[in-house]
Design a protein around this nucleic acid. Sequence first.
DNA 1: CAGTGGTCTAGACCACCTT
DNA 2: AGGTGGTCTAGACCACTGT
Lengths: 261, 261
Amino acid sequence: MTSLPGVLGDLDPTSDRAVFRQIADQLRDAIAHGRFREGEKLPSEAELVEHYGVSRMTVRHSFSLLQGEGLVHAEHGKGVFVRPRPPVRRLASDRFARRHREQGRSAFLVEADTAGSHPTVDRLEIREEKAGQDIATRLGSVRRVLARRRRYLLDGRPVEFATSYLPLDIARGTPIAEPNPGPGGIYARLEELGHRLDHFEEEIRARMPTPTETKTLQLAPGVPVIHLIRTAYDTGDRAVEVCDTVMAADAYVLSYQLPAT
Amino acid sequence: MTSLPGVLGDLDPTSDRAVFRQIADQLRDAIAHGRFREGEKLPSEAELVEHYGVSRMTVRHSFSLLQGEGLVHAEHGKGVFVRPRPPVRRLASDRFARRHREQGRSAFLVEADTAGSHPTVDRLEIREEKAGQDIATRLGSVRRVLARRRRYLLDGRPVEFATSYLPLDIARGTPIAEPNPGPGGIYARLEELGHRLDHFEEEIRARMPTPTETKTLQLAPGVPVIHLIRTAYDTGDRAVEVCDTVMAADAYVLSYQLPAT
DNA sequence: CAGTGGTCTAGACCACCTT
DNA sequence: AGGTGGTCTAGACCACTGT
């Protein structure tokens, strides 16, 4: 084991800064300077208790700070580790371009291939239901909808959970209501049904996950979610789909092109 | 005071779920069901210790969970409160449209007015410096840049901290290097200098704030940041500005239009 | 088995806020 | 002064992981 005094400093008893913050500061600094690398194990609680001469709860408090910042994660029985940055999926603003649909490829697969990762879809659920207030409003006061839920995984790791809502009068009895809607996905089917797509609107928020989301996306502590709500409009300016997506924020970079005009 | 048993349940001693999680579950549930409203005070630690018959540290642990989720915030000497959702700034994808610049209004002011809030700019700093690797790459391997830093506040609350980087050969000695670049902001000046803007590219990430960001944006625990990097391209496809922005995630909704073609 | 983190207790003293 | 949260201690027992 590396001698801790070589890597970590001492406490400043005269400082106003709480001891657990000072310890967190030193660990954070050590990580930032690469003295602990990604995936590497930090000193155990017992070692830090020894090194700083504080109680175990104080050390744990420091760790919980760093965990909240998403810097480290604990593994029961093993240790506390510097959290590695997972590979990110880059979502470009042309990901719904018609040329992709015409090639028979869904947006998720287009992106995954680019990243060279292995994509999976999971927990597919299709049902007719009554839309909530927000969804109904976005769809132009439509309440009877078809909901398509599914979870996306990348190399086995869940990264995104999405629900598409479509007006029932459009989607019922069509391939859109089938588990596999066919090449090009539901957007291709919508166009075949006469709803030529004009544009999409995406709303983006970021927040901490709910406990349910933490479970569904197997999120580590300190990882926020990106909440994206997309509305698809046809050339008649009718909203034909709303897709509500929750993404593990550490797995995504969103990219958009804005006109300057 | 409301009787706690009426609002909060009992613990399940047979459950595998840790006591502090059960308590957090009950409080979370009570908040979700409106039994505690936004801004309202939760029962004090002492009251919960009494109600559940657990030690104070256990109750505090529950609170720290909820704090990490961004649901509540503590005020020293006062109590723990349900965190109110602040008004959000909606950033639309036409916010850099030329028509706004031609009206002599900066993007920040355009948005703030729409929201009916009082905007302020703060901590303006302009200096020439050597760009980091990432910024330099985005600017097409330009290293000598003008950096414009500033903080934005809305009704007195800091919501955004941004740095614009411009190639020195473009910006030096121009109004862009002045504290107040004039009507329409630096984009208007860039166009006057012959760099007609063609489009912008924005990259969006979400993550937990660094301690510095927490301080600069006065972020409550459990509030992530949105990290936005915008590159402005002129009609010659040259990158003429990179703007690196960190936003308090609870204060923003980003909105984009995507073409379906 | 020993080492690790996870949970919990029962205190203590402090700093801040309201009355 | 009395109530509130903030920090810290010195233990205890448990559950998981490795050898």
